[in-house]
Computed example of a mutant assay.
Amino acid sequence: MFHRKLTALDYHNPSAFDCTDTPTCHLCSDDTQYRNCVVWLEDQKIRHYKIEDRGNLRNIPSSDWPEAYQKYLQDLNCPFGAQEKQESVDWLMGLAVRYEYGDNGDSPDFKAGVTALANILKIQRHDDYLVMLKAIRILIQDKLSSEAITKASHKQEGIPVALDKHVLGFDTGDATLNEAAQILRLLHIEELRELQTRINEAIVAVQAIIADPKTDHRLGKVGR
């Protein structure tokens, strides 16, 4: 469950990281690895403490480390405690990803991708592209939620689509976001097709009325 986040953070050997809910023991291998990861997240990504204030957290062999970690979590307003190993470290990884994203979020290519995606989804432009990204996320969650998918499946039988054959036209820098954008683009195209079909049907109906009007002779008058 941590591999993807650690990979995104360029953590060394993310696939080898292991964290269990078993009680921690002083200096057991898993606990040492866990503590090292927490310290790495603080040192390299989160940087909540000043360097000189990280001593207790960096003192991994200390029996007082759990207390230092608990204080660290409280200082970060983490909703989980030190005893909740998986939940707390996952929360820290998520925080680190957000900070890392914030550090590198001013990439022109990334901004262009967010803007292009917002245009496709007809989301109002905003000076803060992070606000636009949040709006995109909300829309994606709404469109791709289990309820929305279930509702759509009841309307018509789905047709398998190979996303890799549909060129997105830009790169957001995130594979998941790219795939979501492709799906939303296809949904948008389908909506446009449905709208065009209804417009064509309306035009045909109007043409039929014009070509063969039903004359009400009661309304006709000759002369004055």
Rank of each mutant, 00 (worst) to 15 (best):
A8R: 09
D10H: 14
P14K: 05
S15I: 05
D18I: 06
D21S: 07
H26T: 15
C28M: 12
S29M: 08
D30E: 15
D31L: 04
R35A: 02
C37S: 05
C37L: 14
V39N: 13
V39L: 13
E42F: 04
Q44W: 02
Q44F: 01
K45T: 03
R47D: 05
H48Y: 15
L57I: 12
L57Y: 10
P61I: 04
P61Q: 00
P61Y: 02
S62D: 13
S63N: 13
S63H: 14
D64Q: 12
W65Q: 04
E67S: 06
Y72K: 10
Y72N: 03
L76I: 00
N77S: 15
A82F: 10
Q83N: 08
Q83Y: 01
Q83K: 15
E84D: 02
E84V: 03
E84A: 00
E87T: 03
V89L: 04
V89I: 14
D90S: 15
W91T: 13
L92N: 06
R98H: 13
Y99H: 13
E100C: 08
G102H: 14
N104Q: 11
G105F: 08
G105K: 04
D106L: 10
D106V: 06
S107D: 15
S107P: 10
P108Y: 10
D109E: 13
K111S: 04
V114E: 02
A118Q: 09
L121Y: 09
